[in-house]
């Protein structure tokens, strides 16, 4: 009798544990990346050299800031592989691109670290102009450490000189600015999610700050993440509001929930495919494809999200 009871309770316990295990992937807590492929060169076989920027969109366009070669490369991808030949953008005005972005029209934007200016190109790769804030209130000086573009094509510039985030219209007209929070270490990157919330990452303190679309200032959404990351220097968000933070010195990515909760850590420092070595910009499109500028490995790696 007792043995039978133990057996029944045991079976119930096993069933409960199995159900719980099945539920975990849907709770948002377990997110994993699956390595798909890597891009090592352009269509002519010229190898990438220490790329620091990647921009992507839902039309499977990928723009790589091939920093060491002083050029941008535009790829069209299908199922993770390059479908057609690459477009090379190499002009005198662009010498050291470190970040790339695409707007909804397919225009290409790039930040040149040497000249500390943002350049704008047509989807075909023709240089249009520099992004210069028009009607910027005092102080007029700014130094763009990073920038991003939202779904309405508004441009957000992380201005480390005047300690603020500038918001510009798609044409470059000054709209507003948000002052950096008090007592920060150093802000390295900026991202905007689908709701228009702006995020900035303090690499020194390991804290992510956010400002909702209509708010007037930043507030921290995480405590110091130094327990998980060594030097978070790049971030982006997906269409569900999750954030992906690149640990430059640690060679890994961490995933945060909308509220800043820690959801997981992927990859680690290394040379083989799937591993990262001083990664820089990360981009994720609505298909769940993740592109990482694996800078010191001189390649771009493509992953997909597995939930």
């Amino acid at each position: 009798m007792t043995k039978a009871l133990v057996k029944i309770f045991g079976m119930i316990a096993v069933t409960l544990v199995s159900v719980l295990l099945l539920l975990i992937p849907f709770s948002g807590a377990a997110i994993k990346f699956k390595y798909i492929t890597s891009i090592y060169a352009d269509a002519q076989g010229v190898p990438l050299k220490q790329p620091e920027g990647v921009a992507c969109n839902d039309q499977s366009h990928l723009v790589v800031a091939d920093t060491g070669n002083g050029r941008l490369l535009k790829y069209v991808l299908k199922d993770g592989t390059v479908e057609t030949g690459t477009v090379e953008i190499k002009i005198a005005q662009l010498s050291y691109p470190i970040k790339a972005e695409l707007n909804s029209k397919g225009d290409v934007y790039a930040l040149d670290r040497r000249k500390r200016r943002i350049l704008r190109f047509t989807p075909e790769g023709t240089f249009k102009d520099y992004v210069e804030p028009v009607g910027l209130t005092s102080p007029a000086e700014y130094v763009p450490r990073s920038f991003t573009i939202d779904r309405e094509d508004k441009i957000y510039i992380l201005d480390i000189l005047s300690e603020r985030v500038l918001t510009l219209s798609p044409e470059g007209r000054y709209l507003r600015h948000l002052k950096f929070p008090q007592e920060y270490g150093f802000f390295s990157d900026i991202a905007v999610d689908y709701k228009g919330t702006v995020f900035i990452v303090d690499s020194v303190k390991g804290i992510v700050h956010s400002a909702a679309k209509l708010s007037t200032g930043f507030s921290p959404i995480t405590k110091s993440l130094k327990e998980y990351v060594r030097f978070p220097a790049s971030l982006t968000s997906d269409n569900r509001g999750r954030m992906y933070l690149m640990d430059k010195n640690g060679g890994s990515m961490i995933i945060l929930g909308q509220d800043g909760s820690f959801l997981g850590r992927q990859s680690s420092m290394g040379w083989k495919e799937g591993w990262l070595n001083y990664p820089a910009q990360i981009c994720i499109n609505d298909k769940g494809e993740i592109f990482v500028a694996d800078t010191n490995n001189s390649r771009v790696q493509i992953f997909s999200v597995v939930e």
Binding site: R114, I160, L161, S162, E163
Partner: peptide, 12 residues
């Protein structure tokens, strides 16, 4: 005039 200026040199 270099490709990579140490960022803090350019801040406030």
């Amino acid at each position: 005039d270099k490709n990579r200026v140490h960022w803090p040199l350019l801040d406030d």
